[in-house]
């Protein structure tokens, strides 16, 4: 598979081995971890200072658990790379971005240009999330 990692970050990509969430207990110094859909992202909260990469697996785009995982990590202060991996499709990119993902490793290659365009699908948004955008209600009421 061609490496199609797209990063919206300026720092260098982590080179640390990515440890599956289930093995984290044994790899107590790991700085990169992979969450699968059933994993409870909140179990990572005590480790946030140490982690530099969290991969969130999307075995199928229809399984939306990873959106909640990502948003929870950001809400609790995680600032490292948050990478959506797997069945990551261009038409979902704007939602991924809104819940805190800043890197994508899709099964099917997507161009950087398409990603930049997709992120701007919605000129305005109705909800406050973790992407820093002001929701419409804030624009209305200053």
């Amino acid at each position: 598979m061609v490496d199609t990692l797209i990063r919206l970050r300026d720092d260098a990509a982590s080179t640390a081995p990515v440890v599956p969430f289930a093995d984290l207990g044994e790899a107590s110094n790991a700085t990169a971890v992979r969450l699968s859909p059933g994993d409870d992202a909140r179990a990572l909260l005590p480790l946030l200072d140490r982690l530099e990469l969290v991969e969130v697996a999307f075995p199928a785009y229809t399984d939306g658990r990873g959106y909640s995982s990502a948003r929870a990590l950001r809400e609790h202060g995680y600032t490292g790379e948050l990478r959506a991996v797997g069945d990551v499709l261009i038409d979902q990119i704007s939602h991924y971005h809104r819940v805190g993902f800043d890197a994508f490793l899709p099964n099917q290659p997507i161009t950087r240009e398409a990603v930049d365009k997709a992120i701007h699908t919605w000129p305005e948004v109705y909800q406050r999330t973790v992407d820093g955008r002001q929701p419409i209600w804030a624009l209305r009421h200053g």
Binding site: G64, Y67, V99, Q127
Partner: peptide
Amino acid sequence: RQWSTFHPEFDYL
């Protein structure tokens, strides 16, 4: 309605 419209977290429940 407004809150749920294009809610990014809850599009693949």
